[in-house]
Design a protein around this nucleic acid. Structure first.
Lengths: 218, 218
DNA sequence: GCACTTATTTTTCACTTGATAAACAACGGA
DNA sequence: TCCGTTGTTTATCAAGTGAAAAATAAGTGC
């Protein structure tokens, strides 16, 4: 089984295998640290991986670097690029846009491991957590307010009023806390997530319209 | 400086001193674990207290018992008994009641140490955290729904519909997350807490009324 | 001043932690 | 078959962990 072009590809194939192993390490480490917190021991993690502890240090120079890799795995690439367009797609009413967005978004983040890493890292005060929250504000809440104002016939305003942002945060936090109760605290919650989102949006949009003395088309 | 009644009071005064010291330990331990998490070392804690590490074991049989004491200090006695009456005081409109309640309640729990211990213990899955959340549902959200229905002229319903509870949780979680952003993530937020609460209640109550096709007196 | 209790520190233990270096095993190419 | 590269384990280290025992300091009642 000799290859025609062995010299450039053969070493690359080996490196790829290494990358796959590395990926497996990160994946399992995410689950592990999600359960144990970042204080979890490297030996226990290695046992979970079915390897010995020093092997971890062949792939990551330190535990901290492994944790950084977990951060990246958890925080980055969660956001689907089409969501930006969805939120701003004025061919459909804002309620339907928000419903679709929040269903997809919560599908992506309502996951025990994700939520736990989110809070563990947030409690540690790491930068990537603040970066993520800034992204939420920029890509969800600001468009949400802008689109609401447009749909309600209010004059556009950029940047949005801090008060409006704060109101959007109450909605965001309210929906988010549903996931926290279900996946972190493991409490019994209403199981129909779509319904929870629908009701939350219903109350929020009607309340915001009333707050501004306007009406929005259903 | 001899005392007239030394025999019964003198030993009690010593015990009192011990209790005071114990209290100081718990108090400082709360701050310490709030910052470091429960993985924080006993030596570092002792240094913060200005004593040596083995002394902790004179007052608490184990680190875990000290942590339990911290839980009790944090979770118990936060709830002011008058809040129950406040929420049900039908001599004032529900909006004012909720405004007053949430201002007082958030004054009590929007505290860096409290919120961090809340999440550290919640992530650990300890029982007292679940107990606390059950209390929130019983003493805040259920009355809130019941009082809203009364004020809106809707038939009383006990227990409240799960859907209504879930809606109340969105409000609760939304307000709570304001504290999380400010005191845990330390992000810049709207500083006027009363205003945030007022707006959140405004939108929620108007939205809920619209949701049920009713009106509530301002 | 003296005996006795009690608060506190010093010393120490057994174990766990992250991390390193050396030994070993597998495998691919000549 | 041997060689060298590489993935993996074994053995080990120094520092830090919760906890206990022993030694010391500081009162307290008589």
């Amino acid at each position: 089984m000799t290859r025609l072009e062995p010299s450039p590809t053969a070493p690359r194939r080996k490196r790829l295998t290494v990358e796959a192993r590395r990926e497996e390490f990160i994946c399992k480490a995410t689950e592990f640290f999600a359960e144990e917190g970042f204080g979890g021991g490297t030996r226990e993690l290695a046992a979970k991986l079915g390897v010995t502890q020093p092997l971890l240090y062949r792939y990551f120079p330190s535990k901290e670097e492994l944790i950084q890799a977990v951060y990246r795995r958890v925080y980055l690439d969660r956001w689907k690029p089409e969501w930006d367009a969805l939120l701003k797609d004025r061919t459909q009413p804002i309620r339907r846009r928000l419903q679709r967005f929040y269903e997809a978004y919560t599908d992506a983040i309502f996951d025990r491991a994700w939520l736990r890493i989110y809070f563990f890292s947030g409690l540690k005060g790491v930068e990537i957590n603040r970066w993520y929250i800034a992204m939420v504000e920029t890509r969800i809440l600001k468009p949400l307010i802008a689109e609401f104002r447009h749909e309600a016939g209010l004059a556009p305003r950029d940047p949005p009023a801090p008060e409006d942002l704060e109101l959007a945060w109450v909605l965001q936090g309210g929906i988010f806390y549903y996931g926290v109760r279900k996946f972190i605290f493991e409490l019994p919650v209403e199981e129909d997530k779509s319904r929870v989102i629908a009701n939350a949006l219903d109350v929020f949009l009607a309340g915001l319209a009333s707050h501004y003395g306007v009406t929005i088309p259903p």
